[in-house]
């Protein structure tokens, strides 16, 4: 009985990892599409939205089923609780990827202003945070997420800097308003994705130690 349950838990974690990787992939690909102004690539991200949504529903149902049938306790319970949070965060990350992909159509007709400002750099940092949070969930190792809080501070600072820079270009020329508003929104999406990486990390910490921490 317990053995079967623990095999199921392993499968649950493996499925969750796949979903987290898909969310990360959608975000990474959307940013690449934005940088390269590649509408087709952007469309391929939008096309993934149903897949990630279905994965979330399936994993969530699996969690409830495991709870109902096995009344898990201690770490087993914490793995399931953490998993429910990880899938929500991963879905959000994927959907922000989709939102960024949606801007590519509007932003592909003319060259980017100031090479997208700090957006590509910010995206790299955010995706590293997501990778580390997922790695911690996978490996039960908390080391990759130790410094996530200070990395999140950097992300907040970058978003603020993109906002100010965007305003500057808008004031220089009103024709930039629409484009820069998109940039500011993209920076906002990326900042939210970093918050979701922190959320995943908080829950991995709980899964591992039973202690609640706040990372932001």
């Amino acid at each position: 009985m317990a053995e079967k349950f623990h095999t199921e838990l392993k499968k649950l974690k493996a499925d969750t990892l796949k979903m987290a990787q898909l969310g990360r992939f959608m975000l990474r690909t959307a940013v690449d599409a934005l940088i390269r102004q590649d509408k087709e690539l952007a469309a391929s991200v939008v096309a993934k939205k149903d897949e990630i949504h279905d994965m979330e529903v399936r994993i969530e149902e699996h969690c409830y089923q495991l709870i109902a049938l096995n009344q898990p306790m201690a770490k087993d319970m914490r793995i399931i609780a953490c998993t429910l949070k990880v899938i929500t965060a991963s879905l959000r990350i994927g959907r922000y990827g989709k939102s960024i992909a949606n801007t590519v159509v509007d932003l592909s007709s003319k060259p980017h202003i100031a090479n997208l400002m700090s957006i590509p750099h910010m995206a790299d940092l955010v995706i590293d945070m997501i990778d580390d949070a997922i790695a911690a969930y996978e490996s039960d190792d908390l080391r990759p997420i130790e410094d996530l809080s200070s990395r999140d501070d950097t992300i907040d600072a970058l978003r603020h800097s993109i906002f100010r820079e965007g305003i500057t270009y808008m004031m220089e020329d009103p024709k930039n308003i629409s484009r820069c508003t998109h940039y500011i929104m993209v920076a906002r999406y990326l900042e939210r994705c970093a918050d979701h990486a922190c959320k995943i990390a908080e829950n991995v910490q709980y899964m591992e130690t039973g202690e609640r921490v706040e990372i932001h």
């Binding site: 009985m1 306790m73 201690a74 087993d76 914490r78």
Partner: peptide
């Protein structure tokens, strides 16, 4: 039942 301190307890209550 949420986070036992001892590994033995953890292993027992998780079957």
């Amino acid at each position: 039942f949420e986070h036992p301190k001892e590994e033995l307890t953890e292993n027992y209550i998780t079957g």
